[in-house]
């Protein structure tokens, strides 16, 4: 029964000296979901992962997989495996023996161990490297061994602690796709910790954005990216323009440089709006709604798009992304359109 293996966390608190790292985390992760804990360093995401793994004990709260109380079990008895940031492969063991380690710890018969390790070597495309030592492998290869060493145990939850932070960008892209493929194949709950928003968006079913020991937003990658709830989320994912604003009516707010029409009602008198650089359109003529006159002060060619800084008066500039074939000169004046549907009313 699938539901029996859901992961439940409730009221998790953890304090290191004067710092409260986790301030009461409640969380439910359905079996087989690829969940990402996303946040800057120090937000508590790694501590939360280590609590699930059993390397930290929370000050309060509970962790269950189905009806199994994980906090009652020491780390080496939990049905959970971890892929470590530094890979943490056993330096004295060959690749095949590294992968076999967990099975041998549990006293599984040698023939069975050999069979399962052989299968795992094949799935992870490590067959040729089975007899090598970790020191003889590249970063990407070590990463795959670490993944294989964890997966061969068929854990109920796989924890990944920034598994790609030590790899270069192109390798990271390959491994993101690989990770997604493996998760689909094994149908195991994956919990990934990362500070890289692109990685989170690329691999996850669900993203939990964390800040200062709390979960500030929980949703699919599309939801979290398109509909940020707070200034922190809007800024951390995709670098949105954040505009201080004053409420004028149920569908209008004054952003200082212009009064803007909104698709949703502000919940505050003084607050913030967010709009993504790629949602702002550059126009020749004044648009029908939310047109803003501006002057291009900076432009950077990024290959697949242009990054423009546009001065809009009131001492403010907006970041605008345009297509590579949309050519604008620095110093040029233009109209910007801020579509009401793309203007988010933030909570804070």
């Amino acid at each position: 029964m699938a539901e029996a293996l859901d992961l439940h966390l409730s009221g998790i608190r953890k304090r290191f000296g004067p710092v409260e790292v986790l301030k009461g985390i409640d969380l439910q992760i359905p079996d087989g979901q690829f969940t990402t804990l996303l946040g800057p360093s120090g937000c508590g995401k790694t501590t939360l992962l280590r609590i699930i793994a059993g390397f930290e004990i929370p000050d309060a709260g509970s962790v269950h997989i189905g009806s199994t109380d994980l906090l009652a079990l020491p780390a080496h008895k939990r049905p959970v495996n971890t892929v470590f940031q530094s890979y943490a492969l056993f330096p004295h063991l060959r690749v095949a023996d590294n992968i076999a380690f967990g099975l041998r710890s549990r006293g599984i018969a040698d023939a069975d161990v050999r069979k399962r390790v052989g299968e795992m070597l094949e799935i992870m495309r490590l067959g040729d490297l089975a007899k090598r030592h970790p020191q003889q492998l590249s970063g990407g290869q070590r990463q795959r061994v670490a993944l294989a060493r964890a997966l061969v145990n068929e854990p109920e939850v796989l924890l990944l602690d920034e598994p790609m932070s030590a790899l270069d960008a192109s390798l990271r892209h390959d491994l993101q796709a690989e990770l997604r493929r493996i998760q689909r194949r094994f149908q195991i709950t994956f919990i990934l910790v990362t500070h890289d928003q692109d990685e989170a968006i690329a691999v996850s079913d669900r993203i939990l954005v964390m800040d200062h020991g709390t979960i500030v937003q929980d949703g699919t990658p599309e939801e979290v990216y398109e509909r940020p709830l707070t200034r922190f989320v809007a800024d951390f994912l995709g670098d949105a323009n954040i505009l201080p604003a004053r409420r004028l009516a149920a569908d209008r707010a004054d952003a200082g440089f212009a009064a803007l029409a909104l698709a949703e009602a502000p919940t505050w008198d003084q607050g913030h709006l967010a709009i993504r650089p790629e949602d702002i359109e550059v126009r020749e003529q004044e648009p029908a709604v939310n047109g803003v006159r501006g002057r291009i002060s900076e432009r950077l060619f990024r290959g697949d798009h242009w990054d423009l800084m546009v001065e809009v008066g009131d001492g403010r500039s907006l970041r605008v992304m345009t297509e590579p074939d949309q050519f604008h000169q620095t110093g040029e004046s233009c109209w910007l359109e801020l579509p009401p549907d793309d203007l988010r009313v933030l909570r804070d």
Partner: peptide, 28 residues
């Protein structure tokens, strides 16, 4: 490298097996 000790625990190793493979292998 203490993460190797954690890796051994994570891979179901008891006290002796952790000592043998995660500590002794490093301080050998």
């Amino acid at each position: 490298d203490w993460s190797i000790v954690e890796a051994a625990r994570d891979c179901y190793a008891g006290a002796w097996r952790t000592f043998r493979h995660a500590i002794l292998s490093q301080v050998g």
